[in-house]
Design a protein around this nucleic acid. Structure first.
Lengths: 179, 179, 179, 179
DNA sequence: CATGAATGAGCATTCATTCAT
DNA sequence: AATGAATGAATGCTCATTCAT
């Protein structure tokens, strides 16, 4: 699965060949089919693996919100950092689940829903504006995390913490100078 | 090309067959090769088409910034709306260029660069914080536009103007209540 | 036809494309079919052209034998030179008829027959051995002329006269030193 | 490979179809590609096979010259017979390598070179004329062997020994009656 | 548990040739 | 006399998948 993940992440689904996977794994093609029902099946298995990891991680970050460990910004930044860390530690499988797979949309939607619930809690707490469409905000956050992962995190330009800090500041206070 | 765009957008590159394109176009396969060098070539042609349209549109929205037509928010929102409109009017080709193609990363990077230049101008004008990483903000905006296009615009849940309004508000003022 | 001959000689039958011929001729494909029934037809026309030229030339050289212009060797050498000259002056069409076409075998056989008749006359005259298989000698001469044309004449290494001289000497007197 | 050789020899490269080869071999097309990289590859393999066989055989006949087993004519005739035998025993592959392939010219040139070396030895020994262009003689011999193979040997009109005998006599003593 | 050997099904591409104008 | 536009008919090749061992 590690080898398959690597190849899928590198070449995409169609351009990854079973023959190449088994070659790198030093087994034969029938052996592959001993462990996986089909090419689609192993791909799906990788997608599900990431899906589960992501869900758990986002949930974990969601719950952490309750605990008032630090200031609002730091608290949220910590939660977002957790997510960037997941992407960093699972680059290949994340690429597959979050960008390559056909389930990506659904996975992102689920992630958005979790984030939206979190935002709702903050609104409840009175920290956030009440007149903002949280569904859009959540979707925006997902989009931002995804794209920054691709362009900054995996490019080695930023660390998860840096990204989390910047994103949080941006989403909390916006670009406008205090006036 | 319209038919090809439709099929590529619907099924992706590999699962789009020349035979299906020509069938829908009511011509034979050799006729296809009369007008396009290869399957890759027509795909690339579509990608380049979108790439050009996007570049022009973002440039256009960038230059519009100079003219002080309305308040800051409205001015920026108008510019962003232009981009969402492009995505709405060219859904198929946008899907190909922005999400399916291998050039997508590069296309997004170029878009980010244009946006970053715009942001830099606002910083210059004194409207925006000076201590923020504009490269990250630009990348974030690209990510947000892309993902909202996918989940809200193309899903028919929001109009370009609504999305532009919300995104602009979010990026300018953030989530935090006035404090 | 000149252009076609050039291309056939250069690339062979299959690798010569009608599209390439008409392109070089600055006409369109239908125009080609206005003058030639098919690809095979124009090829055959070229083959027949060479076939006729060759037959006439060999015949001419055959008849020249009767006239006692010079010594035996010189007389024969002159005749053979005539043939090499034909090959030199009609390289492309010769390549097609003598080496590329499916009629080549037949063309060579006819040439051999003509030569054999000539040899028979010399035997009659008492110049040549009577106990030699003329059919083999004739076939050998055809083989030699063909191969020397390819390797020496068309390579620019020898002139028709030089080749004719050498071939004649070889066939008349052989390799053995006078003893 | 035997089946492929047969078909290539019969129909030529272009008119031989992989589908026909595999059909006669009672396997499917993918099976073909299990053993051969491409149509070109198997053809080249056959060419190389013949090339090697021919080179070895001619070399063998070349070295046999050293041993003074019989009279000059018989010795040389034996060597040439070896070559005709090779052509007889490997008709298909010989047709491919010696007449059909694009390497044919090169193969014949190499053969000529070997023969030329042999002739040079005979000149050294004082058996042959010293004032003859051996390169032309060698090329002539190659041409003769090739063409007689085609017209007499493969036509079933002559045996290798007969051909060798006649060719040798012709090349050694020529056509002229003792004078 | 593993594999050598094979295949079904498909797909992009090419090229000689023709029809309507 | 000429052509723009098209096509029928192939053909080489690939790849996920399986059977017998």
């Amino acid at each position: 699965m590690k080898i398959a993940a690597k190849q899928f992440a590198l070449y995409g689904f169609h351009d990854t060949k079973i023959s190449a996977i088994v070659e790198e794994a030093n087994v034969t093609q029938p052996t592959f089919y001993l462990y996986f029902k089909s090419k689609d099946a192993i791909f799906q298995e990788l997608v599900d693996l990431f899906k589960a990891k992501l869900h758990e991680r986002v949930e974990q970050s969601r719950l952490a919100s309750g605990i008032e460990t630090a200031g609002l910004l730091q608290r949220i930044a910590n939660n977002i950092a957790l997510i960037f860390q997941l992407f960093q530690e699972n680059e290949q499988v994340a690429r597959i689940g979050f960008f390559l797979s056909e389930d990506a949309v659904e996975i992102k939607e689920r992630m958005a829903k979790q984030i939206e619930a979190n935002l709702a809690a903050e609104v409840e707490n009175g920290y956030f504006h009440a007149d903002i469409d949280l569904s859009i905000v959540a979707s925006a956050i997902v989009g931002v995390i995804g794209h920054l992962t691709l362009t900054k995190l995996w490019a080695g330009l930023k660390t998860p913490d840096e990204l989390a800090q910047e994103v949080t500041r941006l989403f909390l206070y916006g670009l406008i100078r205090e006036h």
